[in-house]
Design a protein around this nucleic acid. Structure first.
Lengths: 207, 207, 207, 207
DNA sequence: CATGAATGAGTCTTCATTCAT
DNA sequence: GATGAATGAAGACTCATTCAT
């Protein structure tokens, strides 16, 4: 009974914590970390100011938690794709497609994520940044191993080191998808970013 | 005489203004816009607080001026390369090399520049952002025209639209150079980013 | 219960707001708007600086609220007198008496009020000044109508236009009362300002 | 020669000092003491900032000098009138007329003067205020002596103490003239303030 | 002697955080 | 446990005054 009740409490608390994170994501991505006050987050999430401090030690902590959660989601989705046992070429195509869906469905999150991922604005974020970089690195290594495999099986040309190809694919995917997010209409290319990326990659490693 | 004196004053003022910008670049890139106070900039630049306001109307103005100056420098260097009349393949190689030098010699600036280039955190930056994007776009178009030329002269394979290739090259260059900046030692690839990029691009458009 | 609690809170807040206004009145009338800092008001009122901003949007707002409250008090008292249905001569006498009491009991307020009433120092005060002038005008018109009445009933000589008499009475009352405030002891006339004003006015309009 | 040169210097300096005072009068009366900077005064008067401090020890000193000069001018003009040997009734009429001219020709000065005359906003002004009050008092006493004279010669009714009549006349003159200054067009009375004051005063002391 | 660039103390205002209810 | 009023430290910016040129 006690455990059950405690667990319900626990779950309830987590649900509320998540509500705060959702509101925080919206506000931070709209206005930036320093232009959003704890008061505003509390108001929008319909909690008292003090309650926020039950969920997070301070503003910075809330922010870190948010960024890490986003990172978790993105890399979970990506990792799943990469971990399957489909043919290499198919894995890469799925990777690009899934990443595209992530971008499309989480514009605010993506924007915030990249802002914070690019630069070392916060000394504060040091720990968090390291964590995120580790995940990014792990994705890159997974991609690299896919290239490695494909090369060993003579399906890809060994044009460059697998890790370099991974980095190239990842950066081009980000660039095309970002370009598309920023200005979906006004792009000089009407095709889907995924299609273009496929063409580019077939040109690069295809036989 | 008068003109000379006035000119010397003017030059002196510009020199001091530049000192402030240099200090600001260092501090902003270390700590981020909101974690640097005007007082701190003044102290580090060895001016009085009020003096900063002779050079810049306010903190935001100082920041914009800094970002625009960086943008100017980068795009001046890049544009020069692109505008020459060397063979296409050589132009692209020089583009990558010059960009690499820029990254190597302006680590702090690059870091700050990319931070601010990525996200629309500041409503404030609206005007500035537009300006920067315009320059970026103009570089992309220049690169695209190089690809176009090379294709017309049958030196490049017409694997994708020139603009897409431009975007691909630019993003890969950024990614490799950034990776190298973040952790010059610990990278899993020992080669120079420029070399890798060359290989990748030859694979992509080379015959 | 809820309503009661909320109402108590509300009342408590108003009480505190009034404490701030009281302190502000004292300080502003002693030193003038620009020589009193929010910090000082907060300290004297025994609040934290930030708390002041729960009551007033900014310093200017606090000041306007203060001036308007004074104006309200004064003109409420005056208007009440003027609105009664006593004989005209008696109304005027009461007007002078009540005004005298106001001056005696609110020296600081009166001083501040007249300072700000006289000159258009603040662009800021534009809206407030208009409001105050409207009230003053309404008092003058009430006084004028009293004169008008008295003239129609042949109780007053029609020596000048009613409005002019109103202005004359008002200005003389202010002058005598101010003189008395500034230096209650050292005046060359020992009589009560009210008495003198009565004599003067009887001389002016009395038959 | 030396003396002459020194005297020319002296005169030149006084002329420049006066230019500063003229500019200061305009600016202070437009914006108020605290909303005008020494820099602004210097710029408008076409002097260097530092030069102002050759003429006045500090901003407050400049302000005091300005107010005292205005006071001098006003009371010189007024005193002259009062000192003549015209018949009493005529003196009073001239007093009102001259005062009216002063108001009409020095609107900015009058506005500033009354603002600063009314209240003890500045501890600073303490000394100056005393000085001004002394002059005002002397004018009132002169007026009082005119009434005294007129009464002794049976030309005025002894309706009240001469000093009280002086205060009454002065305050009414200020009120009417001020009213006229504030809104020359929109007044409910079209007559000249002087005319009205004459009527009122004849009613008051005339036989 | 005039200049005006430089100074830095002082002001208003915001907001993360706490704690009495 | 939740609340939100109160706190006060910190930051952007101004401006009277000085002093090297």
């Amino acid at each position: 009974m006690e455990a059950c009740k405690s667990s319900r409490r626990e779950r309830e608390k987590l649900r509320q914590r998540q509500e705060v994170l959702d509101v925080a994501l919206r506000l931070f991505s709209e206005k930036g970390y320093h232009n959003v006050s704890m008061h505003e987050i509390a108001r929008e999430a319909e909690f008292a100011t003090g309650t926020l401090y039950k969920f997070f030690r301070n503003k910075e902590d809330l922010y870190k938690a948010l960024i890490l959660q986003l990172s978790d989601r993105f890399y979970a989705a990506i990792t799943e794709v990469v971990a399957g046992d489909a043919p290499e070429i198919e894995k890469l195509q799925t990777y690009v497609r899934v990443k595209g869906e992530l971008f499309r469905n989480n514009v605010a999150a993506i924007r915030l994520y990249f802002e914070e991922t690019r630069g070392a604005r916060f000394k504060v974020m040091a720990g968090t940044e390291r964590e995120i970089r580790k995940r990014h690195q792990s994705v890159l290594l997974s991609l690299a191993s896919i290239f490695e495999c494909g090369m060993n099986r003579k399906r890809f040309r060994r044009i460059a080191a697998p890790y370099h190809l991974a980095l190239a694919l990842d950066s081009m995917a980000n660039a095309f998808l970002f370009h598309w997010i920023e200005d979906p209409q006004g792009n000089p290319y009407p095709e889907d970013p995924g299609t273009i990326l496929n063409i580019l990659f077939k040109g690069l490693v295809g036989s």
